[in-house]
């Protein structure tokens, strides 16, 4: 590449032509994060069957980049709670959440995970947000696969608004 003799007021980047783009770090990082969500399914009941539906070919969550299901919390950044959570299970769920690295997001799928559902009794947690923070709630008993996909789209929109320099979790 030969350098032109540019007068002083003009920026020297003009010599680079169209070989680069400028953007914000947040935009690049969020683009990567939102399009490669690795879900960890915490499936305890029938909502987990619907989760299997969206992972398999008909609904195909890989269209949204979230098809790589991990069964180790160390490798996942999206925790999907699909099903009823009892108080006996609550420490397990909490521990799995703690084992996930930041950034991490949580989807509460269905009536039971979001509110306890119709299990209004002594043994069921009335919504997992008593234990861990939740980003997206899905209604339904169980939710349709379309609702699952919608929740992933909503989560992607939420990730887009986040900033790399801000602390994500305020305190749990």
């Amino acid at each position: 590449m030969t350098y032109q003799n540019v007068p002083a007021p003009v920026a020297p980047e003009i010599n680079l032509g169209d070989s680069f783009v400028t953007t914000r770090v947040d935009a690049v990082v969020n683009w990567g994060r939102r399009n490669s969500l690795w879900p960890f399914p915490f499936g305890t009941a029938c909502c987990a069957i619907e989760f299997m539906g969206i992972v398999s070919s008909v609904f195909d969550v890989s269209r949204f980049g979230a098809e790589l299901v991990r069964f180790s919390p160390r490798q996942a950044d999206l925790l999907i709670i699909a099903g009823t959570v009892t108080y006996k299970q609550a420490p397990v769920l909490r521990r799995i959440y703690e084992q996930m690295c930041e950034p991490r997001w949580v989807i509460s799928a269905g009536a039971c995970a979001s509110s306890g559902g119709f299990y209004d009794c002594y043994c069921t947690v009335p919504g997992i947000d008593e234990i861990i923070p939740v980003d997206i709630y899905i209604a339904g008993c169980p939710p349709r696969p379309e609702a699952f996909l919608e929740s992933i789209v909503q989560l992607q929109k939420k990730i887009d608004k986040e900033s790399l320099v801000e602390q994500r979790t305020v305190g749990i």
Binding site: Y87, Y122, C123
Partner: peptide, 18 residues
């Protein structure tokens, strides 16, 4: 004992560790 009729059936008890 939760299935006793005098147990308040919506009284929840948290578990701190497994």
């Amino acid at each position: 004992h939760p299935l006793r009729k005098d147990y308040p059936c919506q009284k929840r008890q948290k578990l701190s560790m497994n």
